[in-house]
Computed example of a mutant assay.
Amino acid sequence: MAKRRKAKQREGRAPRFWGRHAVYAALDNPKRTIRKLWATHEGVAGLDLPPDLQVEMAGVADLGRLVPHDAPHQGLVIEVKPLPDIAIEDLLAGAEEGRPLVILDQVTDPHNAGAIMRSALAFNALGLVTQDRHAPPESGALAKAASGALEALPWCRVVNLSRALDQIADAGFWRIGLAGEATLNLSDALGGKRIAIVLGAEGAGLRQNVASHCDALARLPISDAIESLNVSNAAAIALYAHHERTGSSG
């Protein structure tokens, strides 16, 4: 019941995306329903649009009123339906050796989440797992930061992250939680080819219950001159380290 209720709540929202990367990716995604497109003549020039798509031509200033202040819309704004839910069982059923899984524990900033999606797609991740109540919704800011990855990276939202981590372990993944206080370096924690990288929110880090569901806690060996890295930077480094260890590629 909870999953169906959350899905209905998402379906009731109508996010607006802007900018060429986000709009082009959404238009190219067969799983994405586009409700409406607003565009300047320059923005829509050369686009092969579906014949049934509702398109309204508008000026630059008109588009600016449809998006947050100073958002770089590049002459394109779309209103969409959120993507269909992905069950964690379906995500794990498609697991391939060498493809990491990324789990976010209460990372709610859309810019960070979008940047992590971009890195995850770049390093051929299997998908992204977040807790439904503590993750950013699909939005223009998220789509812009993801630069197209929102449309291509499978994103599974779960009710209980600890329970999901148990399912991930049952699927053969070694779960590594990134924690600044850990004594083990990430390079020493990376084991087999099925790796799940678990990241917590900036400042708070991993919650205790989530950390207890990891097989290892590891740190990035950064200089003492700085306390920590932005979570999206940490994710990119961890994904690269896994890629170098396994030699996997997209």
Rank of each mutant, 00 (worst) to 15 (best):
A204Y: 08
A216E: 01
A152Q: 14
G148A: 10
I222N: 04
A146K: 06
S212V: 03
W174K: 10
A201E: 03
R175I: 15
R207L: 08
I222D: 01
C156T: 04
G203S: 02
C214G: 08
A171D: 07
L229R: 02
P154A: 11
L217A: 07
G200C: 05
E227I: 05
V198A: 00
E151P: 00
W174D: 14
A146E: 02
A152L: 14
V210Q: 01
E227G: 08
L206V: 11
D166S: 13
I222K: 03
A171L: 13
D224N: 12
E151Q: 11
L150V: 13
A211W: 04
I222V: 14
A164C: 11
A146G: 04
L184T: 14
L153Q: 07
L161G: 00
A169D: 06
A189M: 08
V159W: 13
I195H: 01
A149D: 04
R163C: 12
N209R: 09
R194Q: 07
S228D: 03
N209T: 13
A169R: 13
E181K: 11
G172E: 02
I197Q: 00
R194I: 10
R207G: 15
E181C: 07
L178D: 02
A152K: 15
A216T: 10
A149F: 09
A196F: 02
W155D: 04
I226E: 05
D188Q: 13
S223T: 15
N209Q: 13
F173M: 10
C214T: 14
E202R: 02
K193W: 11
L199G: 06
V159C: 13
H213G: 05
E181M: 10
G172Y: 01
A196C: 07
E202P: 06
F173N: 05
G200A: 06
A164K: 09
G203A: 06
E227W: 01
E181D: 14
R207C: 07
E151A: 15
A204F: 10
L190W: 03
R175V: 15
N185Q: 14
G148N: 01
F173Y: 10
C156M: 09
I176T: 05
L220Q: 05
A179C: 12
I195R: 00
D224L: 13
G192I: 11
A216G: 00
L153A: 12
I168V: 15
N230A: 09
L199Q: 02
N160K: 14
A201M: 06
H213Y: 03
N209S: 11
R219T: 13
E202A: 09
L184P: 00
S147C: 13
G192N: 03
A216P: 05
A189N: 03
R175H: 08
S212Q: 12
A152W: 15
V198P: 05
A196M: 02
I197N: 01
A171C: 11
S162H: 14
G192C: 08
L190K: 05
R163L: 15
P221Q: 08
D224V: 10
G191E: 12
L184S: 11
A182Y: 04
L153G: 02
N160T: 06
G191H: 09
D215Q: 06
L190N: 06
Q208P: 00
L150S: 08
A171V: 14
D188Y: 05
